[in-house]
Design a protein around this nucleic acid. Structure first.
Lengths: 245, 245
DNA sequence: CATGTCGATTTGTCTTGACATATGCTTGAC
DNA sequence: GTCAAGCATATGTCAAGACAAATCGACATG
């Protein structure tokens, strides 16, 4: 119980509250903090680590936001019951698959710069008719078709090459160009597959597909990407964690 | 620009950071702060309102978490581009429909206390075979069938009556009993409707349905509810906002 | 003209200290 | 024995100040 924490590295560029949060998270993962167990109170913990209470609070808050801990005033902080959970983050399908050890591959079906149609222009908040990069990609996981990804990107991202998109994920490419993606709004629904989608995805006629529309904004508030994706329902599902504060 | 803020009520039980966040949010809604506009820096704002900087920061952070604002070090805080957004919260279908002005109605199909089957027991973290309330409800919106909701609840919630469930939503009933729901983990997928679901939901054979599994935990970390819901894809979709921090 | 350096600006991180308030247990009165 | 008051405990809210680090524009230098 006492050796829950390694020493902190105050010279590291990683913030202290983040280091602490990661250590608590690991303690939960390896079972040192079983579900339902209570943490020491904030002041004790802060003392033991030589931190101020706000910093300690921030570390705990980060895990509360992730859905790993719950707090109740006058009582304390406890580990949430329930099985292992991968918290939802601002990731892409490519990221998710790579993290799971699968090796996603991509086939670029459409790669063209076109004048923005009305709906796309509205979602990206660019003038109608301004040049946008239109992408349509087929994503495989373990050599099985998984999803059809259709995206539109405004200036200055219209110069992404088809070959780079075949090699790496869209989010990866954007991040390596210094784009700081911050907010994404998604709408998740379902519908039947069209005949074309069936042949692309190796599904039978009328199979149910999971659909997602997503608009992603960067740290300046500008739209970076708008997309309409369809996933094989037989092989994919979304996981979301909601936290009330 | 100067009269962005009403006076704050320091005697109110509503926290100051919350009052400030609400006022900024309203300023965005009514267009006083158009998309892309920059806020004053934190120190000025805090000064003008007679607040400390941490309190001001917390107000802003709340809106960043909601996806309304983005911050960039060395630059400032800006309003996100894009259309109006309903933030995601820990709500139920009944809440959502009621908030939209629709009047949800419910028909209780199954209402029984049974020994917890294995899968249910695992999700609720109760012993297998312990008594749980098994519910199956048909939810209507504007007299149209919308979803089939199947839920299991552990002690001490097995005494909810069928008549109260026909009148009010499950989350409403739990809240009125003092249950503080904090964390919910959802898994969203899709599949074809079964023959029985078709007749209940007035859909044609093999129609695509949106599926959701959800486990809800209270502020003590205990499981409150586990459910498996199906929605008519033709009439419902999930909206999610993701924020990277 | 290109490049790099410097400085002003703004958010990010961290500390110390204080008081408020919800919770649950203990204690005491009836 | 039951119920209420009170107390200890823990998180929630708020303040004031300090330094770090990223960004961007202006200016100087090659």
């Amino acid at each position: 119980m006492d050796d829950l924490f390694d020493d902190l590295d105050r010279s590291s560029p990683v913030p202290l509250y983040f280091q602490v949060a990661r250590q608590i998270e690991q303690a939960i993962e390896v079972g040192k903090l079983p579900p339902g167990s209570r943490l020491d109170n904030e002041i004790h913990l802060a003392d033991r680590l030589g931190l101020s209470r706000p910093t300690m609070r921030r570390a705990i808050q980060q895990l509360v936001d992730k859905g790993l801990l719950v707090r109740k005033r006058g009582v304390g902080t406890q580990v949430v019951h329930g099985q292992v959970t991968r918290p939802v983050e601002l990731t892409s399908l490519h990221d998710d698959l790579a993290a799971k050890g699968q090796q996603p591959t991509t086939k670029v079906l459409v790669h063209e710069v076109v004048p923005a149609p009305g709906e796309v222009a509205a979602s990206l908040t660019v003038p109608e008719g301004s040049p946008v990069l239109h992408l349509r990609r087929l994503r495989f996981s373990a050599d099985e078709p998984l999803a059809v990804l259709e995206n539109w990107l405004p200036e200055p991202f219209t110069d992404l090459t088809a070959s780079s998109l075949a090699e790496r994920g869209l989010y990866q490419l954007l991040r390596s160009r210094g784009v700081g993606m911050r907010v994404a709004r998604q709408r998740i629904g379902a519908r039947r597959a069209t005949a074309e989608e069936c042949s692309l995805l190796d599904e039978t006629r009328g199979s149910p597909l999971l659909t997602m529309e997503r608009a992603t904004h960067d740290d300046s508030g500008r739209a970076v990407e708008w997309g309409r994706h369809v996933y094989r329902a037989s092989r994919y599902a979304f996981e979301v964690t909601l936290v009330d504060r």
